[in-house]
Computed example of a mutant assay.
Amino acid sequence: MIKPGSLQKGDRVAVIAPAGPPDEEQLLEGISVLENMGLEVVIGRHVYEMNEDLAVVDQKRLEDLHQAFSDPAIRGIFCANGGFGTARIAPGIDYERIKRNPKIFWGYSDITYLLNAIQNFTDLVTFHGPMVSSDMNDEQRTAETESTFHPLFTGESQTYDSNGSPLVTLAHGRGEGRLAGGNLTLLTNGLGTPYQVYTNGAILLIEEVAEPAFRINLMLTHLKQAGVFDEVEGVVIGNFQVEPDEYAKIKRVLKDFFACAPFPVVENFPIGHCQPNYGVPLGVNAKLTTSPPRLVIDSGVM
């Protein structure tokens, strides 16, 4: 895998919105956080634009994405928020352009589709992490979420254990492989396309938001029947962001589904639609253990 360069104070980064326009006030609040890290922020030309013509929308989103990757002064690209529609633009991406200009690409939720698409066609490490508008605004942001950007500057590895969140083991063991995955709905939707997640020898990360237990069960079953779990080395389960009663049902689904897994499965990582929301590099080596539960991830930058 190709690791992008690390960030330094004074670097210029771009904020784009390939999954839909953000709230302007929240975006500006999140941009202030990036600026306080010493970064110079450039906002994509079409970030706030809305249009009912999907073809026009897609072209504008692609334009901002391509411009950010083409500009040699831009060192990182951060998505403003999630939404929908990234699957539509995946076929139109100039992957050779990205391969010639590797840099940090950061987001999650609907951005999952692009994280995997870019990896599949360029071998570039991508980042599943909190977004500028939806996660870094003044109301949502926590100090822990803000700190998750620091490894982009330092190049340090990351370790997650029960010191930060009480991790729960669903299946014991040890696994090592590249970290892959993202939002469960997007992973499922990508199956059978050139943009699907590849899990052979991988530690698979899954997270979701506002989906009932029966839908989680359906999507996990879909992944299983498509062979996604046949050769994984482990599963990391992030946040599901549902009401407590529904989460109790989801926990039963997860417990039953992974009860006989021949690989380690650990849940309750603070990754996904939650606060704190920790960012992780996809495509780098990771080690998952269960005694005690711990995830160690190599640096995502050079």
Rank of each mutant, 00 (worst) to 15 (best):
A210P: 08
N285G: 12
D23Y: 01
E246S: 06
G155Q: 07
D58H: 11
Y195N: 11
I297L: 10
P270D: 03
I16T: 10
V57E: 05
Q158L: 13
D256F: 09
N81G: 10
F121H: 10
D161A: 05
I2A: 02
G283C: 02
G283Y: 00
H66G: 01
F149C: 07
K60W: 09
R75D: 12
A90F: 12
T159E: 14
K255W: 08
I31T: 12
F127R: 07
L220Q: 03
Q140R: 15
R215Q: 02
I216M: 03
R12W: 15
E63T: 11
A248C: 00
T199A: 06
E156T: 10
P151D: 10
P130W: 07
T142E: 02
E207M: 04
D110H: 12
V42A: 15
V228P: 04
Y108N: 08
Y95C: 02
E35A: 14
A180C: 14
K3R: 05
C274N: 00
P262Q: 01
C79N: 14
D23H: 06
P166F: 03
P212V: 03
Y198A: 05
V280H: 06
D245E: 04
H66W: 07
T154G: 09
D71S: 15
E146Q: 10
L282F: 03
Y48C: 05
A226N: 10
F127W: 09
P151G: 11
M131R: 09
V168A: 06
I93W: 06
T112F: 08
L114D: 08
A248S: 04
G155Y: 09
T188F: 05
F229I: 02
R294Q: 13
G82Q: 03
Y48V: 00
H128V: 12
G20N: 11
A55N: 14
L218T: 13
V253C: 07
P244S: 02
T126I: 06
L152D: 04
I297C: 11
L28D: 10
G181F: 00
G300V: 11
L54S: 10
L34N: 14
T122D: 00
S291Q: 13
E231T: 14
I297W: 04
P21Y: 02
G181V: 10
P244A: 00
P166D: 00
R100H: 12
V296F: 13
A261E: 01
S6L: 12
I77D: 15
R100E: 15
G279R: 10
L184Y: 02
T290Y: 04
A17M: 08
S70F: 14
V15Y: 11
L288M: 07
D256N: 08
Y48W: 01
S109G: 06
K255A: 09
A202D: 05
D123T: 02
R215K: 06
G10K: 14
A68D: 15
L65V: 12
A55F: 10
S162P: 06
L187F: 11
T188C: 09
G182E: 04
F84S: 15
S133M: 00
C260K: 11
V125H: 06
L205H: 05
H273W: 01
L205S: 05
V265N: 04
I297S: 01
G38V: 15
